[in-house]
Computed example of a mutant assay.
Amino acid sequence: MPSSITSQQYYIGLMSGTSLDGLDICIVDFSDQKVNSLYGKTFPIPTWMKEDILGICQGQSLTLAQLGQLDHKIGLFHGNCVNQALQEAGLSSNDIKAIGSHGQTVYHQPDSEHPFTMQIGDANLIAAITDVVTVADFRRMDMAYGGQGAPLVPAFHQALFSHPKQGRIVLNIGGIANLTVLLPNEPTLGYDTGPGNMLLNAWISTQLKQEYDSGGDWAASGNIIPELLDTFLAEPYFNIEPPKSTGRELFNLAWLKLQLKPEYRSEDIQQTLLMLTAHSVAEQVKRFEKAKELLICGGGVHNTALINTLKTLLPEHVVHSTQAVNIDPDFVEAIAFAWLAKQRIEGKPGNLPIVTGAQKKVCLGAVYQP
């Protein structure tokens, strides 16, 4: 894209989710009320950074200085990746209206006496390094009004994927799986269904030293352990009515290991974890009888075994990726945070109270001006 083409509707979205598989960067043109992705790329997260983030999420103790330094380092990494993206896209900072940075979630606790969520990756640094207005800290204003602060993408899904006559469900399979229910002339619903890739990735990393199960091949080599699947699905979270959200604080390696027996084979555990994701998603999808189209995005779209299992569990549904409506499934969430930045810059609300449980619609995010 030549730099001579300038639009004040160009926004950048940054998304690094609970899977920790990379920083997704998307440059989006929102001109003419349309969504045109100009650039999309995933930047690998350095191994040391991933280990530090996982350490926090898994409850390892650290000093305030270590937390502050990691916040700084992630901000530097994000800012430098944005500059590389701009260079590769043939754009300059002057072409971009704003960056929407989700930040890296290290803790999310919406249901305690004093609810809080923490995303790190200093937005001041991102703004300074890129010379672009940066919007970050999207979740806490929703929580200030009693909401879960998550999921935030349903408002974007509503804007992008709604069909005037056809019921749709958008399923994002990241570390956590979340869905958005889009029914004509009915309020949009959305919530976290439970684990997506998170436990699958965690288990294979401990057993085979791989970051993820490519195509779900290792899971497919195993057999379901019925009693273990039943134990997994007995987790109380699955029976909580929405609004609800979850994360690594609940579904983590410690949660998994508490439920294992020595006689279980590793590949059978992986297959059972795949079935946990598939069943917990499918049971929620079946609740909405008017929506027979399932649009899937997120890293889980590449897990062929998981997608085929979902198709088997949902025989009455048309199941395909968001590519069917010309949106790259790998970058839907990054595009969503570009859109949320646009909403903030324009002074428009970014949450859906019926989804998050907040008392009202509010503008989300703090603005960092370079």
Rank of each mutant, 00 (worst) to 15 (best):
Y191C: 02
Q343R: 15
D330N: 11
F331I: 11
F156E: 03
A89H: 09
R265M: 05
A128F: 04
L274V: 05
T312M: 13
G247S: 12
P236S: 12
I129A: 12
G299Q: 12
I269Q: 00
E235A: 06
V281R: 02
K50D: 13
F138W: 08
P226G: 11
L86E: 13
A150L: 09
H279A: 08
L273P: 00
Y368C: 05
T47M: 00
F116P: 03
L313H: 09
Y237F: 15
G79Y: 11
H108Y: 11
T117A: 13
A254E: 14
V332M: 04
A220Y: 01
G350V: 06
A128T: 11
L294Y: 12
Q8H: 15
D192P: 00
L306G: 01
N83I: 07
N351D: 08
I204A: 03
E113C: 01
L352G: 10
N178I: 01
T130H: 11
F337A: 06
V181Y: 07
Q33R: 12
Q207K: 14
Y212N: 01
Q166N: 04
L256G: 05
H78N: 10
G59I: 01
A234M: 13
I307Q: 04
K290W: 08
V28N: 07
I354M: 09
I240C: 09
S61D: 10
L171E: 03
G365F: 06
P315C: 13
L38H: 00
P154L: 03
G365A: 12
L64W: 02
L294W: 05
Q33A: 11
W255S: 10
L274N: 00
Y107D: 05
M141F: 14
H317K: 07
D217Q: 15
D52H: 02
I225S: 05
P115T: 14
V301P: 00
T304P: 00
L258F: 02
L295W: 03
G216E: 08
Q270H: 10
A85R: 11
V319R: 06
